[in-house]
């Protein structure tokens, strides 16, 4: 047999298109160089410090407080975004109003605006003398330099994740299922909670989880508004930076490792849930 297929590598399906070796080889080499090798140093360094040292610096009181704060505020922000992100997505998909396109474009602002810029802007607004802070301060509500302020910054950062996850699903849903529900005698509330909400629930959950994952690691927009008090308003990424500045590489590594494992776990769970759902619905 002299057929061309005989000479092709068997580990991939043969194709008439050229360039697989070049593009695949380059992609893999570049991926290893920029992403995989650097990330693996984190594992190497963690493994090298020994279990006892790892636990001691990775789970110190200060670190635990930072995790609690980072995960707690990120969860709170994700929850707020789930509610209001759904509302924004709903109005953008379902209703017409003047300036809708501008509003839709604006939703992506947090993706485009550098986080440090967002951070100083939010701080100036919520400082006790700021536009909003001056009204809240007399009421005894402190936003800037508290956990509330961190949550506000994370709401800003996470909003587009929810809106952009829900929007396409909502748009795809089609009016026919709602009309079908109406012909079967359901009122608007029943239709929303029994027909629409279950359909967009996975997308909403995905969006909120992405916002949460992003919020846990967020640094630029938070450090200005948080006040950075160790044990009180010190988020985990800031603690990593602080440790680095004090040349405490082990501490920085352990905390980074723990955060990375947790966010991988979140994303892995999310993927598993999605593929389980796809299998169940057969699509």
């Amino acid at each position: 047999m002299t057929s061309i297929a005989m000479r092709k590598p068997r580990w991939r399906a043969p194709s008439v298109l050229p360039g697989f070796g070049l593009t695949f080889g380059f992609s893999l080499a570049w991926l290893s160089l920029i992403v995989l090798i650097p990330l693996s140093t984190l594992f190497l360094k963690s493994a090298g410090m020994g279990w006892h040292a790892f636990v001691e610096v990775g789970f110190s009181d200060r670190a635990m407080a930072a995790y609690r704060l980072s995960f707690g505020t990120a969860a709170a922000a994700a929850l707020v975004n789930a509610v209001f992100g759904l509302l924004v997505a709903w109005t953008l998909v379902r209703y017409d109003f003047p300036g809708k396109r501008i509003v839709s474009a604006l939703v992506d602002l947090p993706f485009a605006l550098p986080t440090a810029v967002a951070g100083i802007a939010l701080t100036s607004i919520y400082a006790p003398t700021g536009w909003v802070g001056q009204f809240l301060d007399p009421l005894g509500i402190k936003v800037a330099f508290t956990a509330t302020g961190i949550t506000v910054a994370l709401i800003f950062i996470g909003l587009p994740f929810v809106v952009r996850s829900v929007e396409p699903v909502l748009a795809d849903l089609g009016l026919d299922v709602e009309e079908a529900a109406a012909t079967l005698g359901a009122n608007r509330f029943q239709t929303f909670f029994r027909v629409i909400f279950p359909a967009i629930m996975p997308a909403l959950f995905t969006g909120a989880a992405l916002a949460f994952a992003r919020g846990v690691g967020e640094y630029g927009s938070v450090i200005f508004i948080s006040g950075n008090m160790p044990g009180r308003t010190e988020i985990a990424p800031l603690l990593i930076v602080t440790q680095l500045e004090q040349y405490a590489y082990n501490g920085a590594t352990a905390i980074a490792m723990i955060m990375m494992l947790i966010s991988f776990a979140v994303l892995f769970t999310l993927n598993a849930m999605q593929s389980a759902r796809r299998r169940r619905l057969g699509s």
């Binding site: 047999m1 057929s3 061309i4 297929a5 092709k8 043969p14 008439v16």
Partner: peptide, 10 residues
Amino acid sequence: AGLEFQDEGH
């Protein structure tokens, strides 16, 4: 056409 490759034959 030559857009796909046979495993055997000519």
